[in-house]
């Protein structure tokens, strides 16, 4: 495991340049837009020149891009960055939105794993039968279905007709422990709130998970079949080992590509789902970023990008560590 420690250190060092690169790119795109942010923030055409001047000073808008970027990053990291549009601390805004996104991501991810993985395994075991064809068709349809359309169909069925879901509000338990409503509600034993949260979140989670379920099912099926056709399977059978042992070996071998993709999916889910959050009026990070773009609040936007970058890199790191645990051939 000494290799692993070395790898972790190296990985943490590459963390920082990657974050800087991602945020700087977005910063660049935001800044080169031909608009006067200070004037926009101060109220547009009729803005008070003194306020505009003050904003320019405050956010170093007269200085070169890299200087602006430097001040921005320093303020963001030291948590002194206040958005001129919302007048709120950028980090606080993001952290405030995080529980909704996190909850949505967890629900969706659970669906992806709990439905996608078994479907893939069943398809592999029932290879080339009607079951396999149905699952593959389902996967293809899921992956190619536009969610904004699909979401409205589901809303029509489950909200308008059946009333099995709610479309407003953000249920939270009376007390905050971890900050994540569903976890707090379970910890408090507040089952009414748990039910409310599930009622509110199951449909958007399903919509968000839908394409990934199909994708994961296909991937699991293929990597499971690959592992099944490996020669070591024959040797396991030749040694008279039972089916359970056989599947243990096959599953672990099939897991490497699946873990990568599941990691990326989880990262993607945490990065917010602008479309789903907008359709279902869930105030998460995806919605926050869309609002920031509309308000030309690029400071909050880049704060969000920074946060997503952080999540992505962390998850990639976790995936790499999982790799090394699953496959001893992978050492860095």
């Amino acid at each position: 495991m000494a290799d692993l420690k070395k790898f972790l250190v190296r990985r943490l060092i590459t963390f920082i340049p990657t974050l800087i690169g991602a945020t700087f790119l977005v910063f660049l795109v935001a800044v080169v837009v031909p608009a006067d942010p200070a004037r926009l923030w101060a109220g547009g055409e009729k803005a008070d020149p003194r306020v505009v001047e003050l904003l320019r000073k405050e956010y170093h808008l007269d200085e070169p891009i890299w200087v602006q970027y430097y001040y921005f990053m320093v303020n963001l990291i030291t948590n002194r960055m206040v958005s001129p549009v919302t007048h709120e601390n950028v980090w606080s805004t993001i952290l405030e939105r995080l529980p909704v996104t996190l909850q949505l991501a967890l629900f969706s991810f659970t669906l992806v794993v709990a439905v996608g993985v078994p479907l893939g395994i069943i398809a592999a075991l029932k290879r080339d039968t009607i079951v396999d064809y149905l699952i593959r068709a389902f996967a293809a349809i899921g992956m190619s279905m536009p969610i904004f359309w699909f979401a409205y169909i589901l809303i029509f069925v489950f909200y308008t007709n059946l009333g099995w879901t709610t479309l407003a509000g953000n249920p939270t338990p009376a007390k905050t422990i971890t900050g994540l409503p569903i976890l707090d509600a379970i910890l408090l034993g507040d089952w009414r709130t748990v039910c409310q949260i599930v009622e509110r979140f199951w449909l958007p989670s399903l919509v968000l998970a839908w394409p990934s379920i199909g994708f994961v099912a296909r991937l699991v099926r293929n990597s499971f079949l690959d592992a099944m056709s490996a020669d070591f399977v024959e040797y396991i059978i030749a040694r008279g080992l039972p089916k359970t042992t056989l599947y243990k070996h096959v599953l672990r071998n099939a897991l490497v590509p699946v873990v990568t993709v599941l990691g990326l999916i989880f990262g993607g889910l945490l990065a917010g789902a602008p479309i789903t959050e907008t359709i279902f009026a869930l105030p998460g990070i995806g919605m926050l970023m869309i609002q920031s773009i509309q308000n030309y609040d690029y400071l909050t936007l880049i704060g969000g990008v920074f946060f997503i970058g952080l999540i992505y890199l962390t998850i990639n790191l976790v995936v790499d560590i999982l790799y090394a645990i699953i496959d001893p051939r992978i050492r860095y």
Partner: peptide
């Protein structure tokens, strides 16, 4: 019954040992 015979009474050695062994164990 075959599982009891395989390995226990009749054992195999295959051509390519790299492929016969599970790389993860």
């Amino acid at each position: 019954e075959l599982e009891r015979i395989r390995g226990r009474l009749i054992a195999y050695v295959f051509q390519d040992p790299s492929a016969a062994l599970d790389p993860l164990y």
